[in-house]
Design a protein around this nucleic acid. Sequence first.
DNA 1: ATTTATATCACCCATTTTGGATTATTGTTT
DNA 2: AAACAATAATCCAAAATGGGTGATATAAAT
Lengths: 210, 210
Amino acid sequence: MNTSFKKRVVIIEDDVEIRNSYELIVNSSPKFFVLNTYDNCEDAIKQIHNDKPDIVLMDVELSGMSGIAGTKIIKDKIPHAEIIIISVYDNSEMVFEALRSGASGYITKSSNYIELLAALDEITKGGAPMSTKIARLVIDTFHINPNSPLSKRETQILQLISEGKTYTQISEELFISKDTAKSHIRNIYSKLQVNNKSEALAKATSDKLI
Amino acid sequence: MNTSFKKRVVIIEDDVEIRNSYELIVNSSPKFFVLNTYDNCEDAIKQIHNDKPDIVLMDVELSGMSGIAGTKIIKDKIPHAEIIIISVYDNSEMVFEALRSGASGYITKSSNYIELLAALDEITKGGAPMSTKIARLVIDTFHINPNSPLSKRETQILQLISEGKTYTQISEELFISKDTAKSHIRNIYSKLQVNNKSEALAKATSDKLI
DNA sequence: ATTTATATCACCCATTTTGGATTATTGTTT
DNA sequence: AAACAATAATCCAAAATGGGTGATATAAAT
């Protein structure tokens, strides 16, 4: 069969049955073919320059190097490769860690073969396939907290702090005295229960205040 | 027709042809029905407590209040409502602003009726429908910059700064002297071309260094 | 072999930030 | 009308930060 136009897929998954089943599914599509499958990242990485995959299907829970560590290394070695995480876990820490490490897709193991092929299609079109719950997790990180304890003015000043502005710069930008800027900032600290700018920014980020 | 089990949909879109076409598409599904359509946010907001929509399809480019401002107000008034933005624009500023304001979906106007209904289904299942390009924009915001100019130690210290730690706390946590911590921080400032912690954090965020 | 980058530590000095206490005006809500 | 929150301002003292300058040791790169 002529496979030159097909997208090259590598599978890294330690459960042999799941691995074989993924391989069958991927090879059932005329658009993709599986070059190689591995039960650990270390072996996959050794072969990565021979395989030159376009797409890597990556399990996270592996013996030895985790799928997240493996994702970092593979993206470092062949940045053009697109990595889709397939995991039983859909908790936020795991998902965000995987995405930070360079994955461009994240689907849960409950996905059926249609969803798996849809994910491969989506990544081929330049998208970022995600299972329902994952997509919502991701989108929710963008939402601003509508119950911010801060007033408009305080939020505005916190915004300026986040841009690295000093008391003086803030007072100049808002046409208020330095002491007034200070007064606002102290009120911000009191409301957020912090003691310095960086802590305020940490709190602002985790509580999505700005 | 008994519509009590159907999801209640409101459409806000100023182009009458597009508006009518959306209405037809949504009503063609047994799972949804259109309560009302509006050509501006102001009118929609006046009726929002009567309409009590489960889902709002929102255009961004409107005369009067923008769809983004409207999204904020609607989410404030009826937080359970899910808002899907439908826009011709798919540039990052627009997308991120819309998501920050409270939207849980963002699809482009090039979407066909299948994609529109798929988006409604996805949001009903608790997901976050996005067009291909939007999903990738969103996911890319998570990726850490693999070309960081900072050393491992410097990145570690920047991480501690982002948690609000002071020089003293950093030195204690890493078992180094205060002056060493300071020295690292100064090197970080020099590499990032900034002059204080907050600016460093702003730069770290925009360049995705941590 | 020599430079370069990294990580460590130190001292001086000026500026910035923070802590605490207090007052006053405006605007909104009850 | 009273109560409250937000905004604005000032004073003093203590702590933290930032800029200058220099040094040592080790590992990595050329």
